[in-house]
Design a binder for these strands. Structure first.
Length: 488
DNA sequence: TCTGGGGTCCTAGGACCC
DNA sequence: TCTGGGGTCCTAGGACCC
């Protein structure tokens, strides 16, 4: 896109009522364009300009799996995210199936390139994007592998470019409608750096709050930059369909339509008590967002709340098959929990009956554990209720995660004692897990000895007086960031 | 539509406690 | 034993997002 940057609405004098007067934030939402497909193009330049479909669960030559990402060229054929590969292939045949000697073969111009998901590679690219974001904003929230919010209030402002930033025009009202704000220049800088340094395109939305920035980044994809200055947020959102508001899905959209609410403007103006009746607390909140009113701070992503694995299988009632599947999923979830250094206190399963009937069962333990055998045992026990049931998908999940506990085990057994290798570390952790399993309730008791007390005076090997809790918190934060990429 | 996998948050009802 | 009220935890399900 080479056209001018769309600036949503003009700032009308006296209309600056969206946010806190004089305290307008500058929030960017960075959304990578068809990220997986862009990553594939990065390493396969011949894919440039081609319809590209990246499928999860897809294997070359097969028609299983679902579309994870479709390039915009592929979307032009109707291929879309979450679509079964088999359906995508009908809309857009595989290039490999185009054979010039076969009159029945598809026209190569109407075919696309299909590739399986390679998350490890996408995470490498994502980490380069994140490096740019870290450089451009101190306050960030990374939402997924390809999306982040930045609060850049302290790096730029809503002042009009060319004017003295220390003396912005009142309400930004002066100047021609195409006046560029400093915020726009900064957002372009971020966008250009991502493209230059990570090699993949992004769309960026800039607004005084998160939800408007999110909508803005979506408004001109791909390769978009949409700026919504304070005072014009409500006006920018008003004509959009309710489904464009973050948090409005198909069900809510339908409910709203039944109330005669079709646009964000309708939603903003709707009776919020009525919305609360229909939608619960979410209703009024969505209405506020639609009105351009969202005071959520950009806060870093925390540690995960749950870890799960699930997998689809040909619909079956066979008990042995189901138990095998759950056993494998349980082992995998337990392994990932251990890798991330967390204990869990609740173990659950999911069993999906055709067509899409989701059943969940969960059991909480007396205390947090790291115990793969127990995950399997509990999961299989919960599965017992579905022995007769035909299922098409099974899942295993651990929740009520506890990171602090293992951190202490890690620090005590690993860092402080020196690197004794992974085996030793795991052994220590397992022993700890077992003891927790027997006496999980000991946790939280004040001054009951144990590792916490050992730390009160500082790490055993270090006399530098560094405050141990602060150190642990920092590790927590780092771990949260580092693991982000795994949840695309 | 015959939907893949990994998450988050919210709600409602029941158990249990004071 | 009944009645009332408040709070917390747990489980199950639903909606939504990427």
């Amino acid at each position: 896109m080479t056209g001018g940057t769309p600036v949503a609405g003009e700032t009308l004098p006296g209309a600056g009522d969206d946010g806190d007067d004089g305290a307008d934030r500058v929030v960017c939402h960075v959304d990578m364009d068809c990220f997986y497909a862009s990553c594939e193009r990065l390493r396969h330049p011949d894919l440039a300009g081609e319809p590209v479909v990246v499928g999860m669960g897809y294997e070359p030559g097969e028609s299983i799996g679902a579309v994870a990402t479709a390039s915009y060229e592929a979307r032009a054929f109707g291929v879309d995210s979450a679509m079964p590969i088999s359906e995508a292939l009908e809309l857009l045949p595989r290039r490999a199936d185009a054979d010039p000697d076969d009159p029945d073969a598809p026209d190569p111009a109407e075919t696309g390139r299909y590739l399986p998901v390679d998350l490890d590679f996408y995470e490498e690219v994502a980490s380069e994007v994140k490096a740019v974001l870290r450089d451009c904003a101190d306050t960030r929230r990374e939402v997924s592998i390809d999306e982040a919010y930045l609060d850049v209030t302290d790096r730029t402002s809503w002042a009009v470019a060319g004017d003295d930033p220390d003396d912005p025009p009142p309400s930004g009202a002066a100047g021609p409608s195409e006046a560029r704000t400093l915020a726009e220049g900064y957002a372009r800088h971020v966008k250009d750096r991502i493209e230059r340094e990570a090699g993949v395109p992004a769309s960026v939305g800039v607004a005084p709050n998160m939800s408007a920035a999110k909508v803005a980044s979506d408004a001109d994809k791909p390769d978009g930059l949409v700026v919504v200055p304070p005072g014009s947020v409500a006006e920018f959102l008003a004509p959009l369909p309710t489904a464009d508001v973050h948090g409005v899905g198909p069900v809510t959209e339908e409910t709203l339509a039944d109330l005669g609410i079709e646009t964000a403007g309708d939603l903003a103006a709707a009776d919020r008590d009525r919305l609360a009746e229909e939608l619960g607390e979410r209703g009024p909140e969505l209405s506020r967002r639609a009105a351009g009113d969202d005071d959520r701070e950009v806060t870093p992503t925390g540690l995960p709340k749950s870890l799960s694995r699930e997998s689809a299988l040909p619909t079956t009632a066979d008990e042995a098959t189901k138990r095998e599947t759950v056993t494998a999923l349980a082992a995998d979830v337990a392994r990932r929990a251990r890798e991330r250094g967390c204990l869990y206190r609740t173990i659950g399963i999911k069993a999906v009956e055709p067509p899409f009937d989701v059943n969940t069962r969960a059991r909480s333990l007396p205390g947090p554990v790291d115990d793969p055998d127990l995950v399997e045992e509990v999961a299989l026990d919960l599965l017992g209720e579905f022995d007769e049931t035909r299922v098409r998908k099974l899942g295993v999940r651990v929740s009520k995660l506890d990171f602090a506990e293992t951190d202490q085990a890690t620090l005590g057994g690993f860092e402080a004692a020196g690197d004794d290798g992974d085996r030793e570390r795991r052994g220590g952790r397992e022993r700890r897990g077992d003891s927790e399993r027997r006496s999980g309730r000991e946790r939280g008791g004040a001054g009951d000895g144990g590792k916490l007390t050992d730390w009160v005076d500082g790490p055993p090997d270090r006399g530098d007086g560094e405050e141990p809790t602060a150190e642990r918190d920092r590790r927590d934060a780092d771990e949260g960031q580092a693991s982000l990429g795994d949840w695309g």
